[in-house]
Structure formats: C-alpha cells, structure tokens
Amino acid sequence: MFTVLIRTIILYLIVIVSMRLMGKKQIGQLEPFELAIAIMISELASLPMQDTRIPLIHGIIPIVTLLVLQTILALIQLKSEKMRSILSGKPSILIKSGKIDINELKNEKFNINDLMEELRLQGYYDIEDIEYALLETSGQLSVIPKTKLSNVTKSDLNIKAKQDSLPVTLILNGRINKENLKIINKDETWINTQLKQNKISSIKNVFLALMDSKGKFYYQCYENKDNK
C-alpha cells in the first residue's frame, strides 16, 4: 500500500512538471501534436500506478522521452514557419465578407450548427455582420466583425470607417515570407525600404514584421522590445 502511494506521488509530480514545461496553454488551446503528447503522458503515468509489477523507471523514461520530443518540435516550429504549418496546420477562413465558405466547412468537418453556436457564444447572431470568422489551429473560432458594426461609435456617429483586413505576416524570425508579400502586392524592395525607414540594418534583426489590420507596417526586433 505504501509502495503504491509513493509511486503515485512520484508519477504525479513528474506529470505536473512535464505539463508545466509544455507551456501555459489550456487543453482547448493545445495544438494536435501537443494534445496527443498530453494524452500519452497521462496514459503512461497511469500504468505504473495501477500495476506495481511494472518498474517505475518504465513509466518515467517514456514520459521524459515525450517531453523531450515535444520540446524539440516546439523549437522547430519557432524556427520554421513551414514546419509549423505541417505540424499544426493553418487557420481556416469559414466566413468572409458575411458569406460562409461551404467547401472550407466540409474540409474542416465543421457543421453549420456548430458554427452558429460558436458565433452565438461570442455574441454574434447575424452572419452578415461578420467580416471574417477563422477556425484557428487550436480549434477555437476567432471572429472579426464588420468595422461599422464593431461596438457603437463609428456607425452611430455616421463616421466613415475603412474595413479592417486580416493581418499578414511579412517577416518571422529574420526571414521574409515571399508568399505573403505577393498577397499584399508588395516585393522585397518595398520591405527593405520599410526597414530602412525604421532604421533597421538587417532583416535578421527582425523577430516579427507584419501588415496589421489597419494596413500599417508593424515590427518588433530581437534586441529590444520596441515596436511600431
């Protein structure tokens, strides 16, 4: 009895430490590979707890191995946008300009009832009031309402407002995303000009640069926390 108690405490602490090292994410926000690792860790920990014939080390080694694997995959995703896309996928646009993308719903196995429920939970009842609805890689639904209907001020005061658009990542970890440059009809000459205007000597110094929802150039460098 005492042996089972000690084994349970040890495995419990190992699982807590492992999950803590995986980062501060809620279960609903875990990427697919992170959720798979979390489930496997819980299963591996439960076996030595229930069966004292299984050496404790046989439960600890696989848990540590999975933790190392998760850490390596997380680091790879930080360095490579392509690998992040392969491992975690990309957000899917389910609604654009007030219209549902039926094909995207089918691809994501997301039925209309689930979509409407998610919209209601976020306080949106009319699809035509939504500019974008994105299904994130974590399974969460992000909603961008039409600008004239966001809160009260602009529509009620008859202020003309330019419609917000989706932010577009241009530089990540010191590397230019050429495909995204094409999306906004820009080239590398333009982005180099933006960097010079902001007194940035090299693209490699840029942690993140994007075209925000207002059409403005935003950046953040490695060496400091300054951004615009």
Rank of each mutant, 00 (worst) to 15 (best):
Y125R: 00
L135H: 00
V168R: 01
G139L: 07
N151V: 01
T153R: 02
E131C: 03
L149V: 04
G139C: 11
A133S: 12
N158R: 10
Y125Q: 00
V143Q: 05
L157I: 10
L134K: 12
E131K: 10
S155G: 09
S142K: 10
Q163S: 14
S155A: 03
T153S: 13
I130Q: 02
P145G: 11
L135P: 01
L172Q: 03
L157Y: 15
Y124K: 15
N173V: 04
P145D: 12
Q140W: 12
T153N: 11
L134F: 03
I130M: 02
I127Q: 00
K162D: 13
G139Q: 06
L135M: 05
P145V: 03
N151Y: 06
S165W: 12
V168H: 05
K162M: 14
K160S: 14
G174F: 02
S150V: 08
I144E: 14
R175I: 11
L157A: 09
K148C: 07
D156K: 15
Y125W: 06
Y132R: 00
I176H: 00
L149G: 03
E131L: 09
T153A: 12
K162N: 15
R175A: 13
P167T: 12
L149Q: 08
Q140N: 14
Q140F: 13
V168E: 11
I127P: 00
T153V: 14
I159R: 15
G139R: 03
S165Q: 15
D126N: 11
K148Q: 13
Y124M: 13
S142T: 09
N158S: 12
P167N: 11
Y125S: 03
